[in-house]
């Protein structure tokens, strides 16, 4: 899919430029953008290295683990069918905390494992394969509402494009992402009240 997206952008850009008489500008832009990308990565290397370095300490100190234990009870409320202390609950909490801390590398594997565990629970409850359970839908909606504490990449981008206060975006960004997460939770609660599990055929 990325091939169509990327290829499409290049093809549309060059053909449009040919008709609009902007081919010279396109030449400059192609070269300039490639250079910009490298400059940007150099800024990002500093910020990312710092953040991942700190997170390594947080991980070894058991902070990530501790935080995911704390949010267990809150999650139980959203996933009533997930048993207390189960593997599923552990992976769900870890995925949420990893997303909140901006740990992409830890979030995805935990999330995929959570899905597998939820599918195991589906089997136990005798629900039809191939149809998402309420828990799976709720988990993905929560995941997509993307709660994040510190958007490290964004801060790096903003500082390399000359922001007056790159980190000034942290609190407003938390407000925005908190709002979308609250809406997602309200949606999940309403749906869970009215939508029973669906069985096939």
């Amino acid at each position: 899919m990325m091939s169509y997206l990327w290829g499409g952008m290049i093809v549309i850009g060059i053909i449009y430029a040919a008709f609009a008489g902007n081919l010279e500008a396109v030449t400059d832009a192609a070269i300039q953008s490639a250079q910009d990308a490298v400059t940007l990565c150099i800024t990002m290397m500093g910020v990312m290295s710092m953040w991942v370095g700190l997170m390594e300490i947080a991980k070894e100190a058991g902070i990530v683990e501790r935080l995911s234990k704390w949010i267990g009870p809150a999650l139980r409320f959203l996933f009533p069918n997930v048993p207390k202390g189960s593997k599923a609950e552990e992976y769900l909490s870890l995925n949420v905390i990893a997303n909140v801390l901006g740990l992409g590398w830890a979030a995805t594997p935990a999330g995929l494992n959570a899905m597998k565990e939820l599918d195991g629970l589906r089997k136990q409850r005798g629900l039809t394969p191939g149809i998402a359970t309420n828990d799976m839908c709720n988990f993905l909606i929560l995941n997509i509402s993307s709660l994040q504490l510190i958007p490290v990449n964004l801060i790096a981008y903003r500082s390399s494009y000359g922001s007056e206060n790159p980190a000034g975006i942290i609190a407003p960004a938390i407000l925005a992402t908190l709002f979308s997460t609250v809406v997602a939770i309200v949606f999940i609660c309403i749906v869970n009240r009215f939508c029973k599990e669906q069985r096939g055929m």
């Binding site: 952008m9 290049i10 850009g13 430029a17 609009a20 500008a25 832009a29 953008s33 490639a34």
Partner: peptide, 17 residues
């Protein structure tokens, strides 16, 4: 990845699209 995408976006921007 970033180089590839920034070039594509840069081309689109400069084309006037």
């Amino acid at each position: 990845t970033l180089i590839g995408l920034m070039v594509a976006v840069g081309v689109l921007r400069a084309s006037g699209f």
